[in-house]
Amino acid sequence: MAAIYSLFIVNKSGGLIFYKEYGSAGRMDTNDSLRVASLWHSMHAISQQLSPTLGCTGIELLEADTFDLHCFQSLTGTKFFVVCEPGTQQMEGLLKHIYELYTDYVLKNPFYEMEMPIRCELLISTCRRPYRRIVLRCWGDECTLNFVFCSFFPPVH
């Protein structure tokens, strides 16, 4: 069994514009989620500069002991990333799917202001469904959340 813990959408200047949790345990408060988003944004930018390969577009996958972080960056610099259980498959497809939903329900909505937090009901409600479906299809059941975000920042000894 595998599950998705949370989904982030970050605008091109590193601000968190959409955040959603899937599950009950290991919740993050608003400040933490904003911090994670801007931290990831900076790490992503640094990784582009440090990468030995030419034309690197930044980190796509971060594997940790307790979670995987898959990231997709659109051509305009908006980043989509999901935090999921280690070893979860098909996350690239899921991120592309979310990107598609974003272009439909956010960018085609006349009341959305670019780079601002997403409050589009339609995206929020459709986001809820596809996930469940994808998770169910792949693993038969959704597992409970057991995700401790602190492991992102290992304690210093």
Binding site: Y105, N109, L122, L123
Partner: peptide, 13 residues
Amino acid sequence: FISIPKDMGTFNC
């Protein structure tokens, strides 16, 4: 594809 913001009340495109 349109979501009406809450502050616009019953407006319908």
